[in-house]
Simulated scan of single mutants.
Amino acid sequence: MDYEPDAGAAEVKFGRTVDVAAFAAMLLAPVAALAAPKPTVLEPISPWNVDWQDNSCQLVRKFGPPNDPTLLVVRQLNLSNALEFTVSGAAIKGVVQAKPVSIDYGVGKPRTVRSPQLATNSLYGASIIVQERFAPGPAGKDEGLRGPDPSFERRVERIGMAASGLDLVLKTGRMGAPLQALHNCVNDLFSSWGIDTDMARNQVKEPRIHDGVALARAIQKGYPPALDQAGKSARVLFLLVVDVGGGVTDCHILQTTEEGLNGHVCREASKARFAPARGEDGQPVTWYYTATVVYKFTG
């Protein structure tokens, strides 16, 4: 399933999105109080499907009327409790601005999402992509590195999303079982890459890149001239396997909007050097490093 990011301000971003803050919006009340518009509430029209891909795992479900459905794709990009949500189709057609976006699990307060992105799905049309922790409460230091919280997942029965032109509630049903299937897929995938997934239950100090700015610049320089001239944006999520010596032993593209960028991104990223990850005992361990490269151009 292909996604094409929409054009925006020129920038390249390199890093992870895990921290969140509570979202609160205040409006000046008019003399005559107006009732807040009701959100669009959509029921599921398909079962959950787990899509096992070569380099990623995702949950997929359709909502709303069959003749004009809305698609929800939930991806787990690493072993933490952070998930990526992509909503595409009819419910997103009126969204003209991706910031700010809040997400609401129906348990606890809504949270503001950092770095949301508008995109276009090749089959369903308009899309919005956000990354957010699927866990209770705002993220404290290193909280986003912890593994999934099954007790919280079992309590969630809906996913709400609000933005300019969007107030949507997807009635997902209890998320415990489908997310467990997703976690199983991800654990199998990471084990095949040589990662000890049992360590995700503990606190692992992630590998630290020595010069992320230089890597981001090297990746930016390889942007295809044809896409550059057309002002076409792109987004690539990748994962590096970092060994105990701080070297990169493997690169996996988790998601991309431009297949032509994949080889270049992995070639440059594989040159990076890291301070290796360390386990609870302080000893170096083979672990992973995930990052997102976003190219945006002014249309």
Score class of each variant (00 low, 15 high):
1 M>H: 06
2 D>Q: 13
2 D>C: 03
3 Y>W: 13
4 E>D: 06
5 P>C: 05
6 D>F: 01
7 A>C: 12
9 A>W: 04
9 A>K: 07
20 V>P: 02
22 A>D: 02
23 F>D: 12
23 F>L: 06
24 A>F: 05
29 A>R: 14
30 P>N: 13
33 A>D: 01
34 L>A: 14
35 A>E: 15
47 P>C: 05
48 W>T: 03
51 D>A: 07
51 D>Y: 02
52 W>L: 05
63 F>M: 03
65 P>G: 00
72 L>T: 07
72 L>M: 10
75 R>G: 01
76 Q>V: 00
79 L>E: 03
80 S>V: 05
83 L>Q: 13
85 F>L: 13
87 V>D: 08
91 A>F: 03
91 A>Y: 04
92 I>G: 00
95 V>C: 00
96 V>M: 10
103 I>G: 10
104 D>S: 12
106 G>I: 01
106 G>C: 01
109 K>F: 11
109 K>P: 01
110 P>L: 05
110 P>G: 11
117 Q>R: 11
118 L>C: 07
123 L>H: 11
126 A>R: 14
130 V>P: 03
138 P>C: 06
138 P>D: 13
140 G>R: 13
145 L>G: 09
150 P>L: 05
152 F>N: 08
158 R>I: 07
160 G>T: 09
162 A>R: 15
168 L>R: 06
169 V>T: 04
169 V>I: 14
170 L>M: 08
170 L>G: 09
174 R>N: 10
176 G>V: 05
176 G>Q: 09
180 Q>I: 01
181 A>N: 12
181 A>S: 11
183 H>Q: 12
185 C>Q: 10
187 N>P: 05
187 N>W: 10
189 L>N: 07
189 L>S: 08
194 G>V: 07
195 I>P: 10
197 T>G: 05
202 N>P: 00
203 Q>L: 13
204 V>F: 02
206 E>S: 04
206 E>Q: 05
206 E>K: 10
207 P>S: 02
208 R>S: 12
213 V>I: 14
221 K>A: 11
223 Y>D: 07
226 A>D: 13
228 D>H: 02
229 Q>K: 15
229 Q>M: 10
234 A>M: 04
235 R>E: 12
236 V>K: 03
237 L>S: 04
237 L>W: 03
240 L>R: 02
240 L>A: 14
241 V>F: 01
242 V>E: 12
244 V>Q: 14
246 G>V: 02
248 V>H: 06
248 V>N: 03
249 T>M: 04
250 D>L: 04
250 D>Y: 02
254 L>S: 08
258 E>F: 08
259 E>Q: 06
261 L>E: 00
263 G>E: 12
267 R>P: 04
267 R>T: 11
270 S>E: 04
271 K>T: 15
271 K>P: 00
276 P>V: 13
284 P>M: 14
290 T>W: 08
295 Y>D: 08
296 K>W: 00
